[in-house]
Nucleic acid binder design. Structure first.
Lengths: 186, 186
DNA sequence: CCGAGGTGTTCGTCAAATCGAACGATCTGA
DNA sequence: TCAGATCGTTCGATTTGACGAACACCTCGG
């Protein structure tokens, strides 16, 4: 999984970056957000595990959405290797399920089965409409896919999700490669 | 742009909703996330102000993005562009794509990878909430599935969709059977 | 020279979040 | 009916985050 742990360092970096971008001093931001400047200092230094309340106040004072502080570098590609996803209750024997992606409250998801054969790089010429997210689960073979600058290689059972509204590639590495593609657009 | 206050109640509601949607008990979710169930209980009851670390662990265990827990009231403003028809294989030059099912304008689809092993007995899956539709694409092996009175056998690449709110079976016919399951519920 | 006002950091204290254990309430199978 | 296993809640003990007051440092201006 690409989820090492709590993005404490990421929050620290995002806080400092957003604060400097807003041209605020640590003291001033702390005053506006109503938090102690000592708290903010420790947060920016990477130490500490802020509460939602505290982080929310800082986000409001900075004028940025909450999610931008906790997920600053929106992971362009989310990969779940085979057998690495969180397991879903196996209410029955002989059945193990791995939840790859929860459905958004609204939006559509179209289900495809795609087959690819090795050859010249198959770069998608035109991206899809904005907001599109593609989910790919390789059934057999190997596929190199992802945004142009972050291509990952997937094997059977591997899962990857990435934005579909930017140029991205689909390249089969072996004959007989096929996969399930769920295209989500909001 | 300043929203009223910390979405404590929203987080509580989102936690409970996502947990029930994943079919997890409070105890089980707490165990997987590595947090005390007492903590989770208080969070879902609206009391408490979770730390980022705690909330992150819960988000990972639930398989949902962090932001979905803190910003559940996503703006229902959604535009499905007119004329945005389903993609056909001819539009995707370098591989063949087969549209299996178009997503409903509202509702959600959760993506799973499931592995099944043959057993001496197979029990029927418990029905899900009304309106649930299951889409299954077999990646490897063979699966007998479908409503109790209409069981079909699927091989690699085969696709089947059926109502999930009636008793239905999942039975692997070969070792190493796995498939992609998209569970759709409105 | 030296106080005034600013920066960000470190310290002790207190409230609160988290934890572990025990609780009553359901169920299920013996 | 009872033992066992769940469910979710509540309770006290402990950890820890948030606070406020100092702190060292820097830059002006009297």
């Amino acid at each position: 999984m690409t989820v090492p742990g709590p993005p404490l360092a990421a929050i620290a970096a995002a806080l400092r970056e957003q604060r400097e971008r807003a041209g605020l001093s640590l003291t001033e931001l702390a005053r506006r957000a109503g938090v102690a400047k000592s708290t903010l200092s420790q947060l920016e230094s990477g130490a500490g595990n802020p509460s939602v309340e505290t982080l929310w106040a800082l986000a409001v004072a900075l004028g940025v959405p909450f999610s931008q502080l906790v997920e600053p570098p929106a992971p362009p590609v989310r990969v779940v290797r085979a057998g690495q996803g969180p397991l879903v209750p196996s209410e029955r024997a002989h059945f193990t399920g791995s939840l790859l992606a929860a459905g958004p409250p609204h939006g559509r998801r179209d289900i495809y089965v795609i087959t690819l054969e090795p050859g010249p790089e198959h770069r998608q010429a035109q991206p899809h409409i904005p907001g599109t997210v593609e989910h790919l689960i390789v059934a057999a073979g190997r596929v190199r896919t992802g945004p142009a600058d972050q291509v990952v290689e997937l094997g059977p059972g591997d899962y990857a999700a990435f934005a579909g509204d930017v140029p991205h590639a689909y390249e089969a590495m072996e004959p007989g490669t096929w996969a399930v593609l769920v295209m989500e657009h909001r």
